[in-house]
Design a protein around this nucleic acid. Structure first.
Length: 154
DNA sequence: TCGGCGGCGTACA
DNA sequence: CTGTACGCCGCCG
């Protein structure tokens, strides 16, 4: 397994996220798999967290359980995410039934938003990324040819 | 060096 | 269904 190149990994996460179709959702874990690092699901969330590029539809990435991840901020972030998805036509299951009107302006901290993954899930086995050698492989080539140097300078 | 802590995921009770 | 326990791995104190 190649080491994780943070910059490449983040770039891949953003590129893959950009490929999620309008009105569909996928999971952190699936994006991690598509980057070639299936065990880095948490890093996917981390990458999306400090995301600033408005061109990346971060709101289309949810937990594999179909629930919108709770950021522990009083439910505001999750509410925003649910709201944006609603605007895309994604049905948010809120509480006891589908199509329940949600007051996104006053999110309930205990509110949990779920999505029917069978309907809106987008889980391609593979995606084509431009600018990378191989979809599932980022071979560390000459980028770090400093192996002649022992790591004593750090 | 160590120990928590994540926009997680899976397995079980 | 909910709650707990781990594994995961980079980051930060």
């Amino acid at each position: 397994m190649p080491q994780v190149n943070p910059e490449v990994f983040h770039a891949k996460v953003y590129d893959i996220t950009r490929l999620i179709p309008h009105g569909r959702v996928t999971s952190y874990g699936h994006i991690a798999r598509l980057t070639g690092h299936p065990a880095h699901s948490r890093l996917v969330g981390s990458a999306l967290k400090f995301l600033q590029d408005p061109d990346v539809p971060w709101h289309r990435v949810i937990s594999s359980s179909g629930a919108i991840a709770d950021r522990g901020d009083g439910g505001e972030a999750a509410a925003r995410q649910a709201h944006r998805l609603t605007q895309e036509g994604v049905t948010i299951i809120h509480g006891r039934g589908e199509g329940v009107t949600v007051d996104f302006a006053h999110p309930n901290p205990n509110a949990k938003y779920r999505i029917n993954m069978a309907l809106f899930g987008w889980f391609p086995d593979q995606v084509h990324l431009e600018g990378y050698d191989e979809p599932n492989d980022e071979q560390i080539q000459d980028s770090d040819s400093d192996l002649t140097e022992p790591s004593d300078d750090e």
